[in-house]
Design a protein around this nucleic acid. Structure first.
Lengths: 207, 207
DNA sequence: GTCTATAAGAAGATAGAC
DNA sequence: GTCTATCTTCTTATAGAC
């Protein structure tokens, strides 16, 4: 019984866990490449060298696999957005998020494909994506308010809402252009935009 | 023979043309809703009340139908972007583009879904989308240069490139947020952003 | 845990009648 | 021009052997 309590590197679930992670990564790539509808269980299974049946055995259904992919993606993203930083420093940390995205193209491909697909109310990832956007927006607003209270920036309440939405839009929009044409200088454009945002936010009597 | 030369409202192709347009509109909606992979010939045909076989007869293949959809979409978009305006007035006309998008949600859903899907090199709409982005970017740059030459704005060459990319990003990004959450005030946010862009561009010795 | 075999259905596309 | 019927292939998912 003791061996069964916690799966470890030597424990009984070692292979299962490793395999599961392999499948999730394969699925992320395939969904990023072909979308959720276009990416088939067969393709995903073939890339890790297992049968479609084994894959289904692990995740129950294609939708179960999607949930695992989205969960994994949240974890990967969360690691690289600064949760310990506050106020303006939080937005300065967004540069590192972009650097991370640049090095993990598949991750952002997955996210934007899912987001566009999930504009349909029947898409299985719709709730997840909606929540994700709400969380990001509220996070931006919260940190801008913090920055205002500490005197770092000078923004009214409606300006905070506007700037939060705009920054989100710029991030998504630049990433979209970069996906279509990888020669677009994503990091350069975003850093410049962030510089000007911060400059604008910190200017006294801005508007 | 005379009756066959040009299809008119009374000509022999009248029904065919009307039917064809119906199918293209249905396909636009279905592709917008489920993406290209997820949208099936069967669904598209059912919505216009014809058989899948008839649809294929008209367009040859699913990819042929996609081409017709993209062509139609270009025509619809082109009508509402001001080709007769130049310099700053051109960007002011972008407000009307947004108003048009707001009233034709399916069109923008189609565009953004296609764009995200087409980040994959094997997607049949990839070339089309790439060209579309290039054209838009070059259009923005051209009109900003015109505005500089006529003394309307004060921007360096690299600032023009930056502002063009950023405005494109804001449009796509705000539209994406609006698709996910229709309560987002797309027109309001964009108009405010455009106001500030124009204000920034027209400021002497901006940077 | 993983496989083969297979069910049950939907996909794109074709043939030929009307 | 549109249909029904059908082909082939591919889809997700299950059953049961090893």
């Amino acid at each position: 019984m003791a061996e069964l309590s916690t799966p470890t590197a030597r424990g009984p679930y070692r292979n299962g866990i490793k395999r599961r992670q392999q499948v999730v990564e394969s699925a992320s790539n395939v969904f990023a490449e072909f979308g959720y509808s276009g990416g088939s269980i067969r393709t995903i299974a073939a890339r890790v060298g297992i049968s479609p049946a084994t894959l289904i055995q692990h995740f129950g259904s294609k939708e179960g696999l999607l949930e695992a992919v989205l969960e994994d993606w949240t974890n990967q993203s969360a690691v690289h957005f600064p949760d310990d930083m506050h106020g303006l420093a939080y937005f300065d940390g967004a540069r590192r998020v972009m650097d991370f995205h640049l090095k993990h193209r598949g991750l952002i491909e997955l996210f934007l494909t899912m987001t566009a697909e999930a504009s349909s109310p029947v898409h299985p990832a719709r709730n997840f994506i909606q929540r994700r956007y709400t969380d990001t927006y509220e996070g931006f607003v919260r940190h801008l308010r913090e920055a205002r209270e500490s005197g770092e920036v000078h923004l009214g309440e409606d300006e905070i809402a506007y700037e939060a939405r705009l920054l989100m839009a710029v991030m998504d929009g630049l990433e979209l252009q970069w996906l279509i044409d990888p020669s677009v200088d994503l990091a350069g454009l975003f850093n410049r935009c962030l510089d000007e945002c911060i400059r604008r936010w910190t200017m006294p009597s801005d508007r």
